[in-house]
Amino acid sequence: MNDLDFVRYSRQILLNEVGESGQDSLSSCHVIVIGVGGLGSLVSHQLAAAGVGRLTLVDHDCVELSNLPRQLLFNDSDIGKSKAITARDKLALAYSQCKIVSITDQFGPENGASIVNMADMVIDCTDNFPSRQQVNRFCVDALRPLVTASVAHFQGQIFTVDTKSAPESGCYHCLFPTDSQVSETCRSVGVLGPMVGVMASMQALMAINHLLGIGQGSGKLMRFDGVSFKWREASLSRDPQCDVCGVKAKESGYHQSAHEQSCSKESIHKESCHAPN
């Protein structure tokens, strides 16, 4: 690390949990941010500023006027431009030590595996339920840690899926099966900018902590209510019959308990949900 970088990151290096070695290790990490909207623009900004070495930003959408109250990286002159490219250009200019690549194709079956396989970590900042299921599936298949957060109205949810180090906590699909009904999206129920900021900061913090092995972020679902200002925490559980992480958990050597084996799957998951946005 050169002297300027040492000064730049001095407040992070000062932390016992980070230190110079932690800062070095951040600079060698490649993080994929899927969705560069409310959460994604803030999370990628935080990670680039913190010294993550490589970022890949994935988004096929363009900046819209209604994005600007919460997507602080963008302004009026960006309307109509690609979010992934605009974010890449602005962040690369501000944080030259971060190598940033943009992908403007929609994340999906054609490119999902190759994108996720590049990553040390994936951050899910997408704005719809089918995309979240896809991101989870590719991350579980590739054994990549996934930090998933979401926000709408005054509700936020965040947790980490790590099939490699915490298979007993299951995956996104264990908690929210594919046939779950989704009622709340930012487009349908609205959201305040700071509410998005709360969840994005939590997501960036959870990502950095996980990359540096700080704390025990995995295995916990955190939910925030922005009206009552209450956080709630619950331990995640694996669905032994989950058709996304079930096989992978076995491969990675996680054995089901007798209790789990006695539970039967009660419904066949239908591909019945539709994109709300």
């Binding site: 264990c174 099966p177 009904q181 331990s235 669905d239 539970c263 009660e266 419904s267």
Partner: peptide, 20 residues
């Protein structure tokens, strides 16, 4: 049934266990 997740005593109860 397919509109919610359930936590009981701070532990997620996956849908496959709801009948039992």
């Amino acid at each position: 049934i397919n509109s919610v997740a359930v936590v009981c005593n701070s532990q997620v109860v996956t849908k496959g266990q709801w009948k039992e």
